[in-house]
């Protein structure tokens, strides 16, 4: 038996929103410790990895590990039937999980709706991503990162990210001209969500597709801060941390000139 009850149902809506543009079908892997998902986009350039700890649910019950194969478009349609303040419970029979039950309860518990989502067999490739010591780790406001991606898309479909001790610089060059945004580290003790920090082993300069990056910024509503981890000639890691876990996006760099 699998059961996971999330008092903040809106979080599940936001999570789904941050994954569904990148992948259409995905396995939610459920175990005693929580729910996780790893899926690559069709072009095998980007990957999303989601982890939700069991402690974030109340209650959480999973007797044995199993996978829920979900079409995210279908799940999204059903999730639209949940109110933003609803408590959401996910239920499945782990021995014959051919459907996922979704229960939406409003705050006064007067309205309860129940939906069954048909599950599917998804044969997904999993990549093993090792713990990595990155050359540069940047924390910045997630809304700022979203704005930079949106703004620079006006100029080009790729962005070069340069990180030094003193700044992170985003540069775009296109047919109409060029643009860049530089951010310096700041620490605002009274407003930590607005701070920018750079931890640097060595300077890095990497080029990425803005289409994917701006797709990743769908995670913005999940966290005030975003973490960018870069190493030369390695995929970029973009992480949004939440109280109950994290969503991580990986993006392979573009080939340098």
């Amino acid at each position: 038996m699998f059961e996971a009850r999330l008092t903040q149902g809106a979080l599940l809506k936001r999570l789904l929103d941050s994954v569904k543009e990148l992948v259409t079908d995905a396995n939610f892997d459920c175990s005693e410790t929580g729910i996780s998902l790893q899926a690559m986009d069709n072009s095998h350039v980007a990957l999303v990895s989601l982890s939700l700890r069991a402690e974030g649910f109340n209650p959480y019950r999973c007797d044995r590990g199993f996978s829920l194969g979900v079409n995210l478009n279908s799940l999204n349609k059903i999730m639209k039937c949940a109110g933003n303040e609803d408590v959401i419970t996910l239920k499945a029979d782990d021995s014959s999980a051919d459907s996922l039950c979704l229960l939406f309860e409003n705050s006064s518990n007067e309205r309860v709706s129940e939906y069954e989502l048909k599950l599917m067999d998804i044969d997904q490739e999993h990549l093993s991503i090792p713990e990595t010591d990155y050359d540069a780790t940047v924390m910045m406001p997630s809304a700022e990162f979203q704005r930079i991606c949106r703004d620079l898309m006006v100029v080009s479909e790729s962005v070069t990210i340069d990180v030094s001790k003193d700044e992170i610089k985003f540069t775009a060059e296109g047919e109409l001209g060029t643009g860049n945004v530089k951010l310096k580290p700041t620490s605002t003790i009274d407003k930590p969500e607005e701070s920018i920090t750079i931890e640097l082993g060595q300077t890095v300069s990497l080029q990425f597709s803005l289409k994917y990056l701006s797709n990743f910024t769908r995670g913005t509503p999940l966290s005030d801060q975003v973490m960018l981890c870069l190493s030369d000639n390695m995929p970029l890691l973009v992480e949004y941390k939440m109280d109950i876990g994290y969503i991580r996006y990986y993006l392979a760099p573009k080939v340098g000139d």
Binding site: M40, S43, H44, V45, E125, H126, P235, P253
Partner: peptide, 14 residues
């Protein structure tokens, strides 16, 4: 895609 690495260039399949 021209000019773009793939994730499998960096990470092994499980």
């Amino acid at each position: 895609i021209n000019g773009q690495y793939f994730l499998c260039n960096f990470y092994a399949q499980k």
